[in-house]
Design a protein around this nucleic acid. Sequence first.
RNA 1: GCACCCGUAGCUCAGUGGAUAGAGCAGCGGUUUUCUAAACCGUUGGCCCCAGGUUCGAAUCCUGGCGGGUGCACCA
Length: 581
Amino acid sequence: MKTYKEEIAELLAPHVGLPASEIRDALTLPQHDGHGHFSFPCFPLAKRLRKAPPVIAQELATAIPAQGEIEKIEPLNGYLNFFINESDFARRTLSLIAAQGANYGATDRGNGKTVVIDYSSPNMGKELAFHHLRGTMIGNSLSRLYRHAGFQVVRINHLGDWGTSYGKLIVMFLREGLRESDLEGMSIERLNALYKAFENAAREDATLEDQARETFQQLEAGHARYQGLWAAFRDITLHELQRIYGFLNVQFDHYTGEAFFVAHMPKTLAELESKGLMTRSQGADIVDLTAHNMPPVLLRKSDGATLYITRDIAAAVYRKENYAFDRCLYIVDNGQSLHFQQLNKVLELMGYAWHKEVEHVPFGLVLIKGEDGGWEKGKTRSGQSSLLKDVITAAQEKILGIINEKNPDAKDKETLARQIGVGALVFSELKNRRLNDIRFEWDKALSFEGDSGPYVQNAHVRLCSILRKSAERFGKSEPDHPAAGSLDGIDFGKFPEPQAQTLIRSLSLFADRIRNAIDANDPCPIAQYALEIAEGTHSFLHVCRALGSAEEKERLFLVDCARIVLGQALAMIGVPPIESM
RNA sequence: GCACCCGUAGCUCAGUGGAUAGAGCAGCGGUUUUCUAAACCGUUGGCCCCAGGUUCGAAUCCUGGCGGGUGCACCA
C-alpha cells in the first residue's frame, strides 16, 4: 500500500515537473494545528517558474482537486497544505499498527546488511560504574533500532581484559598470600579491592609498578599460572557483569575482549611492518602519523608489550573477516575521538578501503554534582566513583517508598521498584542528544513527573490497566487485546476529539522516528517520541473514558494500538515497559 | 598549541534547512463520585553566545571570534 506521501507526490508530479520521489522527500509534516497532515513548500519552484511561492501554491491548489482520502488542499504562506480525512487517517494508521503488532515501525532499510556494534566494554576486575550506563544503553538501543530496520546486528562487548592492570592484579593477589583455592566464590568486590590495594601499596613501594609490568609481560608470553589466575578473574568479572546486564535487559553476541586478540598480535605487527608503517622511536614501535597531523600510534612499548590500539587494529580486521560487516560502530565516549581517528587512519594506510565503514559513535560525559557544588566527571581510575549497582539500588529504594505510598498492594514490589528505577535512570540519559554532556541530578533523574522515565512508563501502565479492566468485566484473567482481533464493526469516524487525533497522528510517525534515530546513531529521537506518545496518551485518557462509553469499541482499539507503539518505543530505548506500577 | 564536542526561557533540555522556536522543572491559577492524579488544563518567561557568509528561506550549513567541557608517547 502506498503511503500518503507517495500518493500526494504522484498527484503533484505532473503539475510541478519534478519526479515523484523528489517531491515525496520534500513533503514536510506541519508543526501547527490547522495546517493539515502534509505540506509541500513551494519556495524552491519560485525561480524556475518565475512566480512568487504563494502564487504557485494558490495555482496548484486550484489545479489539483481534492480526491480519495485527501479531503482538502489549501495554500498558505507559500505552502500547499494537504488535509487527510480524519476517519481515513485513523483507519489507515491504526489498522497498520494492528496488523503489524510488534513489527510496527519495522522496515527493510537495512536489507540484510550487517552492522557490528561495540558497546559497554568495561574493564575486567572492576565493577560497572555509573558512567558506564550511558554507552551501554546507547549501544543497546542502537542494536534494537538497527535490527528493527532490517539490519543484521552483531553485538560485541570488547572487554578491557588485557593490559598492565592485570599484572597489577596478579602481583597483589600473590602479595596478599592468596592462592588458587581462594578463587572459589571470590567476589568482584574482593577483586576490586585488590586493585585498590595495589594503588595504595605502589605509592609506598615504587618497584611494584615494575613488577606489574613484568608480570603482565610474562602473562602475555604465556605464563601458565598467571594465565590461570587471569582466567579466574575474568570469570568473576563476567558473572557480575551479566547480573547487572540482566537488570538492564542488555545482551551481547560476543564477549571477545582484548585478550582474545593477543594471539593475533604477531600477525598484525608483521602486517604493519611489511606494509612499511611500523617505525622505531624511543625504543618503542610506532606508526608515525605526523604527515597526517596526528600524534604517533604506539603499537608496542619499549618492554615489548602491545597496547590497546594494536589490539583494536587486530580486532577491526578480525571483525571484517569474520562478520563481513557493512558498518562497524564503536559506542565510546567522546574523550577517545583521537584514538579512533588514529585507528581509522592506520586502517586506511594499511590499504583497507573499508576503513570508511568503521565509525566512532561518541557520546558526552555524565557529570555528577560534586560536594563543592561543581560538576565533576564520574571517575573510576582515581578511585572515587559511584558503582552502577549502588545507583540502581538507591533508585530502587527511593521508588519503593513511593510504591508503598501510592500502590501498597502491588505485587513483587522489589522488582517493580527496580524496573521503575532503571527506567528513570535510563530515560534521563537517553532523552538528551548523544554528544551533550549530561548534568546528572538525583532528584531530576528519579523524578516521577514531567519528562521522565516513570512518566512514560505510567502512560503505558494506564493503557495496560484499561485493557486489564476491560477483560476483568467478563471474568478473564488475560487483558484484552482488541488490536489483535478483527477490525469488523470499528467505526474509525469515532475519534473526533483533538486529543485522539493528536495521539493517532503521533502513532503514525514511528518508522520516521526510527529512521531519524538511525541516521543520527542516537536513541534520543525515540526517547522524545516515547514522551510524545505518553503525552498524547495521558491527554487522550483524560478526556475520553473508554470503558462503558458509546465509543468503547473504538477507544479500546486505540488504547491497544497506543500500548503496542509505546511499548515498542520503550523497549527500543531500554526502559522497561511495565504493565502496572 | 593542536584535535573532538557543547553554547536555545531563571534551571535542565528538545527542535539540526522551512510557516508563529517547543517541553519539563521552578513560579502563578485551576481540574479528581469516573479505566493508575506517577495525570490533565491555563498562565508568566527567548537579541536561539557574537560577527560575517551561503540560501527564496538559517537556531539549524560554512568561516572567524568569545565562553565552557574533554583529550593529546609507552594506561584502557
